[in-house]
Design a protein around this nucleic acid. Structure first.
Lengths: 357, 357
DNA sequence: CTCCACACGGTAAACGTTTACAGGCGGATG
DNA sequence: CATCCGCCTGTAAACGTTTACCGTGTGGAG
């Protein structure tokens, strides 16, 4: 781990000036003989350009930050998986920030842009506060926000459309003949919780179904909360024939309880999840789920940022990614997704490859 | 996005030299009056230290790289989730590299250490080639390898113990009275595949069970491969009473086929997966799975690297993380993990929180 | 043979910090 | 009142690049 060679070392060994070395390394026009000498010296010394010094001079780090609450969350993970290759292809490294859903941490990340250790930032804020908006207005590097931002905010912005997503699910359930569709939601003071609750009510109206408070349960976004809520629901309203769950974990909890209660899925109760995570395809019965396009949002955000980094000072752009309904066995029935004669008749999905050892 | 203030701007405004500014910002002894002036100027200008210039001078970037094949893989993700907070707490940023399981990419990452854009690296190589060893020997920054490395390699190293892991699983199955235990493995030219195959054979021997080639199937590490392999297996050897699967995805495929074939799990056939991913707890029946301690390995690697960064030139260390068997319904039976009276009697796990909208 | 143009390459400044060194000023001491 | 000692602070160099600018040497043309 001795000090590596610098451009000076090479210049000395090749008997030329550091300027010539730099020119050769950057492919600027140089005499053939000089090129040869410099290359030879660089090879022998195992020279590698110092990225820090280069960044200082060029004012570009070729790094981009991605900040979200928690990589463990499948939605963020899906974004990350799309963002990474896009950036890599463009020659950027990816710096990862987990903010643990703490607003101060998010602000700190925005502030740290002033340190200029990255050329740009993609951020998924938990919720957008006044402080966020202030920091965004004076950010020292281009930022793309994934999530909704107040009208007029001067920042590139990629949104999902959970309203349409909920509607897709309810239309699907309605088409299957379900009429007593309950909602198992997350906390209403979160952005997704509020949006999904409102969308549910609205979609019911459009389907000419009555809104019934008894059919709505609030818990947290985890499996145990879903289970608890559905247990209560079954006790209060044994006649429900469909469950709209605010995410896939809640839906898994719902499946647990329905199974324990002897209700068949989907014959007695159809279940729809949300986010279309790996878990949806893995569960049994496999779970119909609304995809809010996390992957697509990640990709779009990365592309917006790259354009901004290369190009210019255009007005902020807003991209809205449409939702998609992934229909599986929990609504479509057991005919869906079966192995017969060693052949699988459902959707295939690529999981992660094993890497232990 | 105008050019931010530098210590020069501050020096001018405060009427002092840049040296004084630097001293104040670094908390070196300075007259109270000067501190006041500098702080005031810095505040008014919204000054933030330039990390690049600082790194150039101090030869420390406060960044660490983590390189693995694919963040989508739950095993790597588990590592990442542990590595991130440890580094963050120590004031390091995390640069993420996905190598897509391409050896050249891994070598490129090792080479890029010469650019000095990070202070250290944690790497999970797909397999360790001659080229790896050469690069490791001359690496320009401390490296910690997760995975096994030939004896004598001078590098910090965190290992799993899949041999013991497989043995844990087979002992468990044996204790449940199972005697015809099949293995559904991944390709033998991968490190995990080879290790698990050998461990299976060895463990069978120790249990005085015969090794029967018909009971071993090779496919890839995905769900569809698992399904295919188990379908063949059932045809060839309808009398099997347990399945050891080389990872959780394979095990899910196995569950699909067993269900389709009308075999009860675990009454007729017990199933064990490997890696103990989220999917294991999500599936139905929930899946008994061997954890190879991905999370612990990630944490250990991060801690080793930090020590190395702070401290010194001790000899390379090897940490081996013991495996653990997570027993669930696919072997322990339906009594495990039930909701009764709204209470859950199984293991609870925290999934990701929803973050869309 | 002289002059000019041009290609090439060297010198030095700059990017924004940190830090070794030296100078200045004030106070304490003789 | 003179001297010395310390505390602060300023000057400048250094980290490893890139690049503007200028000088030198070569070849060709007149």
């Amino acid at each position: 781990m001795a000090d590596g060679p610098t451009i000076n070392t090479i210049a000395e060994r090749a008997g030329v000036s550091i300027a010539s070395v730099s020119r050769v390394l950057n492919g600027l026009p140089t005499r053939q003989e000089t090129v040869r000498k410099v290359m030879a010296a660089a090879d022998e010394l195992g020279y590698v350009r110092n990225a820090v010094a280069r960044s200082l001079k060029s004012r570009r780090t070729h790094q981009v930050a991605f900040a979200m609450a928690d990589v463990g969350n499948p939605a963020y993970l899906a974004m990350l998986r799309q963002i990474q290759p896009v950036l890599k292809a463009a020659g950027y490294r990816l710096v990862l920030h987990s903010t643990d859903a703490v607003v101060e941490d998010e602000i700190a990340v925005l502030h740290s842009l002033g340190e200029r250790y990255v050329d740009g930032l993609i951020m998924v804020p938990l919720r957008v506060t006044e402080a966020h908006l202030r920091m965004l207005a004076t950010a020292r590097a281009p930022v793309v926000i994934i999530g909704s931002v107040p009208d007029g905010t001067r920042v590139d912005n990629v949104r999902a459309d959970s309203r349409t997503g909920v509607r897709l699910a309810l239309d699907h359930l309605h088409a299957l003949g379900r009429r007593r569709i309950a909602l198992v939601n997350g906390p209403l003071d979160t952005v997704p919780g509020a949006a999904r609750g409102a969308a549910y009510r609205e979609a019911l109206g459009d389907l000419d179904l009555p809104y019934d408070e008894d059919l709505v349960r609030i818990g947290d976004f985890y499996r145990a909360d879903g289970a608890r809520a559905v247990a209560e629901l079954l006790a209060a309203r044994p006649d429900i024939d469909a469950l709209m769950c605010a995410n896939d974990l809640i839906a898994l909890g719902a499946l647990d309880v329905l199974r324990a209660a002897g209700r068949r899925v989907p014959e007695d109760v159809a279940v729809v999840g949300m986010d279309d995570t790996d878990l949806a395809a893995a569960s049994w019965p496999s779970l119909t789920s609304v995809s809010l396009g996390s992957a697509e949002r990640g990709k779009a955000a990365a592309e917006l940022l790259l354009e901004r980094l290369q190009g210019g000072e255009s007005d902020p752009r807003v991209v809205t990614v449409p939702p998609r309904l992934a229909v599986r066995a929990s609504t479509a029935g057991p005919a869906y997704g079966k192995y017969t004669d060693g052949k699988y008749t459902g959707e295939m999905h690529a999981g992660g490859k094993e890497g232990g050892a």
